[in-house]
Each structure stands twice: as C-alpha cells, then as structure tokens.
Design a protein around this nucleic acid. Structure first.
Length: 287
DNA sequence: AACAGTAGCAACCGCCACTCG
DNA sequence: GCGAGTGGCGGTTGCTACTGT
C-alpha cells in the first residue's frame, strides 16, 4: 500500500477536513522540501490555523500533520538528543504526580515535546516494568521508582556535579534540585534552564545505565550542603535503608537459590535489587 | 553475511474541549 | 443553544536502525 498518497479516513471529529477529502493527502515521513516549505511559511505568516496554513503553504498535508511536525520537530527551540539525568528525574517525579499528562509534564522540560517524553516513558520506563514483571501503574513499581531510581538519579546528578564541576557546560547546579515532598525530589527547571546554551544537565543513556553504574561507596558519603540541596541520606531514608539491606540480600541471593522465575540475574544488579525490593514490599507491605 | 528480534522514534488516529458564527 | 471548525492530547502504529545469533 502506498503510504505516501492515500485518502484520509476522516473521523467524526475531523469532519472539518471535508475539502481535503477530495484531494490526495500525503502521509508518512516528511521530506526536506516539505519541512522547508512549512518552516518558510511559518516564518512569514506565523503558526496557528493549521488547516488554512497547510492549504496556503501548498502542503498536501492535514493541518494536524503540519502542527505536529512543527511542534515536535521543526520548532527552533526543540531540544534533541539524550534525555539528561535531570530530565529523567523530572519525568519520574512529574509522572508520579500527574500520570500520563505528557503535555503537562513537557511544559516543565523546556524544549522537550510531549511526544518525546511519552516515547521515553514507553521505551525506557515501561521496559523496566516489563522486565520486573509488574504493572507500570502498580504500587510496587511506583515505589521502585520513588525509592530506587529517583534517589540514584539524584546521587548521579550530584556525582556528576562534583566530578564535572570544572568542565564544560554540563555543570549541574545543586541549587537546581529542590525538595518536593518527603520522599521525592525534582530538579528546578526554571533555574536549570537558565543555562545559556539550553543544554543543561548531564547527558545519559537511561535508567539502566544509572543503575548499573551506581557507585556503591557513595551510600556512605551523602552530605547536606545548604538548605536547598537534596541530601539523599536525609530525603531518602527509605531508599538507603533499603539499599543497605539490598546489598546484603544480593549477597545472600547470589550464594543461595535463585528466585523470580529462576532467571540468571548475576549480570544484572539492577534487576536483582528491584526484584528484592519488590519482594520485600510483598512481604512487608510497607516501605 | 544473512536473518530475526528488538528498541527507538516519528507520525498518525481517535477523542474531546473549546471557540465562533 | 447548536453545529462546524479547530487545536490539543493520549494512545497506537509502523518504519528504521541496531543488536544478537
């Protein structure tokens, strides 16, 4: 089937495309020429009125398609590239508060689109939930995020701030990290985004990377620096209590029988800890 | 090298709320 | 008040690049 030229199947809500029903509309990936046309038109006439815009610009696309292309890709302030540690932390925190309100979450991540955040969540976070064999909306998984991933992200952010304090534009300002509530934290996007090159934060691969590279010895050296700086020890008692116990549990587990499907997790510290954490929750029903 | 499976992401779909005539 | 037009949002799909065998 030719995906480039098809009749648009109009939904009830899209009845306004009546006129477009009679014309062939392009679908699928945008070409460089189309991008240029759209950018050029918006540069001269501004955005909005997308159906009219599409027509007047001579684009054989729906208004929706033009809008999406502009917002998610062509807009000059769109940030591309890896989601940074700070952004990951923000996403986890905001998602825990608002759920799948991607656009609302995106408002707090300047330059990031709701689509990008949504994709990040689905491909990275949900992947881990799947690996852990638990529902992404379950309490267990949410607690794992709150008490494991987020504290570790904070620690890595701080570690990066310490290690890279003298280098480049990736310096992380501890003041950007603010307390949200007793158990969670979030970077202060308003200050974080004040960096002149619009590239605050530490580029990082993903949560798995965060977990694999977690320096165990840091558990003992958290410190409180200033009132606005998160102290993992202070704010994440549960997490650290857990981590200490987790280490023991891991030792125990590695020396004893395997559990949870009998899978071999010896090369996957992250999963081991997660599994242990979830197991503890199931046993104790408290965190 | 070839193939299969998987991950990441751009784009589309369908629904809904809002605006305006 | 009503219906058409529009924009926005969350969910889903499908393509492509990557990775493992």
């Amino acid at each position: 089937m030719d995906h480039q030229h098809v009749k648009v199947n109009l939904s009830r809500g899209d009845a306004k495309n009546k006129n477009e029903d009679d014309m062939d509309l392009r679908r699928g990936p945008w070409t460089v020429e189309e991008d240029f046309t759209l950018m050029n038109y918006i540069a001269h006439h501004g955005e909005g009125r997308w159906n009219t815009l599409a027509r007047c610009a001579g684009l054989k696309r729906t208004g929706k398609s033009c809008r999406l292309r502009w917002l998610n890709y062509l807009r000059p302030d769109v940030r591309r590239g890896n989601i940074t540690l700070e952004e990951q932390l923000l996403i986890l925190e905001l998602h825990s508060r608002w759920g799948n309100r991607w656009s609302k979450i995106a408002q707090h991540l300047p330059g990031r689109t709701d689509n990008e955040i949504k994709n990040y969540w689905r491909t990275r976070v949900q992947k881990h939930a799947k690996q852990l064999k638990c529902d992404v909306n379950s309490k267990q998984f949410k607690d794992t995020m709150r008490y494991l991933w987020m504290p570790r992200l904070v620690e890595r952010i701080q570690a990066a701030a310490g290690a890279g304090a003298s280098t480049s534009s990736e310096v992380i300002n501890p003041q950007n990290i603010v307390q949200i509530d007793h158990n969670t934290c979030v970077t202060n996007s308003s200050t974080a985004t004040a960096s002149s090159d619009n590239s605050f934060g530490t580029p990082v691969s993903d949560l798995t990377d965060c977990c694999y590279n977690y320096p165990q010895q840091q558990q003992d050296c958290f410190q409180l620096v200033g009132e606005s700086l998160i102290s993992p020890t202070g704010y994440f008692h549960h997490a650290l209590e857990f981590q200490g116990a987790a280490a023991a549990a891991i030792d125990h587990q590695q020396n004893t029988t395997q559990w949870m499907d009998g899978a071999n997790f010896s090369d996957n510290l992250w999963n081991i800890e997660d599994m242990w954490f979830l197991q503890q929750q199931l046993n104790n029903n408290v965190v």
